[in-house]
């Protein structure tokens, strides 16, 4: 029980944790509110791709999304970031969500283009999936997403 609490506290401090899945990788992200949990989910995503500490804030991209519900919005948000990494080679480490409700998200994400001399790329992420997708707003916010790797 103690070990579990310790893990949980560590995850809370970091804002996210990685969960095991046979073929793919899941993440659980925490936040005092839903925006913070969405931010931590994005940080968890880029922690799979590279070392977050190696990323500097050189440029930003603005994202505006609409989706039928908040779960879909979470998947769309992460898929948009995967798209920006894949198509523009950008890795992000800071996210500023300026608006988030059940169907709309507005955010500015800061990062830089991949530089192979500086960034060690780890895992390729194909997409965020709807499998095991969860948003829990009781007692602080918690979101869970499974990525296809």
């Amino acid at each position: 029980m103690f070990a579990m609490n310790k893990c949980y506290n560590l995850a809370m401090e970091k804002g996210f944790e990685i969960i095991d899945h046979t073929a793919d990788v899941g993440i659980r992200a925490y936040g005092a509110d839903i925006s913070q949990a969405f931010v931590n989910a994005a940080r968890a995503l880029f922690s799979l791709i590279t070392e977050l500490d190696d990323v500097e804030e050189v440029l930003y991209r603005d994202v505006e999304l609409t989706a039928p519900d908040q779960e879909s919005l979470l998947v769309e948000w992460l898929n948009e970031l995967i798209y920006l990494f894949d198509a523009e080679n950008i890795i992000f480490n800071r996210f500023d969500i300026t608006h988030l409700d059940n169907t709309q998200l507005k955010a500015r994400s800061y990062g830089e283009k991949v530089d192979s001399s500086k960034h060690k790329l780890k895992t390729g992420v194909k997409a965020a999936t709807y499998h095991m997708l969860k948003i829990d707003k009781g007692n602080g916010c918690k979101v869970q997403v499974l990525f296809d790797i």
Binding site: T22, Y130, H131, D148
Partner: peptide, 8 residues
């Protein structure tokens, strides 16, 4: 094995 949606 365990996938997402469909099993692999």
């Amino acid at each position: 094995h365990w996938g997402y949606g469909f099993p692999i």
